[in-house]
Design a protein around this nucleic acid. Structure first.
Length: 287
DNA sequence: AAGAGGCCCTGATAGC
DNA sequence: TGCTATCAGGGCCTCT
């Protein structure tokens, strides 16, 4: 679930709940995430307050009052849950999980605040937490990442220039974080569908108009997803990233063999595989 | 340098 | 029912 829009929705929720709050205790149940958690992790966070919560691409960046940062990546299956203290069992019993959306397994990391808890859950453990010691190190951490779709730098000149002498499929470039940051497998399909561009098209063969469309539609799709995510998540008071109600209306993703939603198109959505990942498209209206 | 492929890990689901 | 195979929204690393 976590592409840029989902991470942004999580960021907003975390900001609402934890800005200015002090981390009283850090509990780590499993250090073996995507990267093994440093032994000093707990100590570096204990008694620190959260000044701000930023986001870059699919990364959450917690800015602490000692000017260090804690970055969080949700990987494929990471979710963050907020548990409020008004649950009686909160600090007295480990089986406090009576929030219906909070899993009982794979809750690897918890930050305890005075009146609430942040719980990090991640079955596949492709996500990670990482401490960053200062602004400079933070900048270095992301120096090989391309601009976000919203970034002014992500313009026609940048795109055309980047595609020079390249010949991968456009779908793969949308997933390439060095080119553009924050787009994942779902929205890559959606962006190309909206742009009426076949995902198999080599970037060599894209004209200016098509490049323009990709830029505009990347912004459009992601912004819309943030708005939708924000509105659907509002009903979930303590839990973020829960499945079930967190649905979006995808035009192509997951719609294999269903009818193309474009007006006056008789096409059927196909599923193909590119670089070992599924791509959904309508071969009739995506040329 | 660019591009292809393997791999980290668990859980849900499909097929037999 | 229970086994095995396949697939999942990410990104890093290695090899060619």
């Amino acid at each position: 679930m976590p592409e840029l829009p989902e991470v942004e929705v999580v960021r907003q929720s975390l900001a609402k709940n934890f800005i200015g709050k002090k981390i009283k205790k850090v509990l780590v149940r499993n250090r073996k995430l995507r990267f093994k958690l440093n032994t000093s992790f707990e100590k570096e966070l204990k008694n620190k307050s959260i000044n701000k919560i930023h986001r870059f691409s699919k990364y959450l960046i917690m800015e602490l009052n000692d000017k260090k940062f804690c970055i969080i990546h949700l990987g494929m299956s990471g979710t963050i849950h907020v548990v409020k203290k008004n649950n009686k069992k909160f600090f007295t019993n480990t089986s406090f999980y009576n929030s219906p959306n909070l899993p009982t397994k794979h809750n690897h990391i918890e930050f305890e605040f005075e009146n609430s808890k942040l719980v990090y859950n991640d079955p596949r453990r492709f996500g990670f937490f990482q401490m960053i010691k200062d602004q400079k190190q933070l900048k270095d951490r992301f120096k090989f990442y391309g601009p976000e779709p919203f970034d002014k730098k992500f313009d026609l000149k940048y795109v055309i220039n980047y595609f020079k002498n390249k010949n991968k499929d456009i779908k793969n470039y949308l997933l390439d974080q060095k080119f553009v940051s924050g787009i994942g497998n779902i929205y890559a399909s959606e962006i190309l569908y909206l742009s009426k561009i076949n995902p198999l098209t080599s970037v060599n063969d894209l004209n200016r108009t098509q490049c323009k469309k990709i830029i505009i539609n990347s912004k459009k799709i992601l912004l819309n997803a943030i708005i939708k995510g924000g509105s659907t998540i509002r009903d979930f008071k303590n839990t973020f990233g829960s499945s079930g109600k967190f649905q979006k209306e995808f035009k192509v993703y997951g719609r294999e063999k269903l009818k193309c939603k474009r007006l006056n198109c008789n096409g059927t959505i196909d599923k193909i595989v590119q670089a070992n990942r599924s791509t959904f498209l309508c071969k009739i209206c995506q040329k």
